[in-house]
Simulated assay, not measured.
Amino acid sequence: MLLNIDISQLAVLAPLLNSMALLIAMCGAWLLLATRWRQRLALDAARLTAIQSAGRRAGVAATQRIDRFFHGFGLGSLALACLLSWFSRLI
């Protein structure tokens, strides 16, 4: 039956969940760092070119929108990694 679970099988699951949490956390942290680096480069480029056209302003709005998405996704992945790590401690 599927409901008969041996305790020794659950002990193998905890390191697997912790490894998965570590991988997710590293990907989320890298995404946050890369987004911050990209924002910094865009800010430096905007300072160099003081004159902005209307098309450039539309590009800035799109960049801010994608940055918000990346921040949300990165923070969500860190939260998921935290939950997975917490769940693995319960096992």
Rank of each mutant, 00 (worst) to 15 (best):
R38C: 00
W86C: 02
S77G: 05
A54C: 05
L2C: 07
T35K: 00
V60G: 08
F70M: 10
C27V: 10
C27S: 12
A42W: 07
A21Y: 02
R38D: 07
L48C: 07
T49H: 10
T63N: 10
G28F: 04
R47M: 08
G28P: 00
V12L: 14
A11W: 13
V12Y: 15
S53R: 03
L43C: 11
F70E: 06
A54V: 14
S19W: 06
R47F: 09
D44V: 08
H71E: 10
R65M: 10
F87Y: 06
L48G: 09
D44A: 10
R56K: 08
G55L: 00
L32C: 01
A14L: 00
T49A: 14
S8K: 15
A21G: 06
M26T: 06
L78W: 01
L10A: 03
R68S: 10
L2W: 09
A46H: 13
V12C: 11
L78P: 00
G28S: 05
L43A: 15
A61L: 03
L90W: 04
L43G: 12
A58T: 10
A14G: 00
T35Y: 00
A45T: 03
C27H: 12
A14T: 01
A79H: 09
N18G: 05
R38Y: 00
G59P: 02
R56E: 08
S8P: 04
F73K: 07
A62R: 15
L90Q: 04
I7K: 14
G74W: 01
N4P: 08
W86R: 14
A29W: 03
S53M: 04
A45F: 09
R38T: 02
A45R: 06
D67I: 02
S88L: 11
L3F: 07
R89C: 07
A46Y: 13
L13E: 06
L80T: 08
A61V: 06
D44E: 08
F73L: 08
G55I: 00
M1N: 02
R47A: 11
I66F: 04
S88G: 05
G74V: 01
A81G: 14
L83T: 03
A79S: 09
A81Y: 00
V60R: 15
R36L: 05
D44Y: 09
L3A: 13
I24P: 03
L16D: 08
A29D: 01
W37E: 08
D67W: 04
L3G: 13
L83V: 04
S85H: 12
I7E: 13
L90M: 05
H71C: 07
A62V: 05
L13Q: 05
L84M: 03
M1S: 09
L13C: 09
A79L: 12
G76T: 00
Q52E: 05
L48S: 09
W30M: 02
T63E: 12
S88A: 15
G59R: 03
R68I: 03
C82V: 05
A58C: 04
I24W: 06
L2Q: 10
L31Q: 15
R47H: 12
M20A: 14
F70H: 11
W37F: 09
Q9W: 11
I91E: 07
S53P: 14
L32Y: 02
L2S: 11
L80I: 02
G72K: 02
I7H: 10
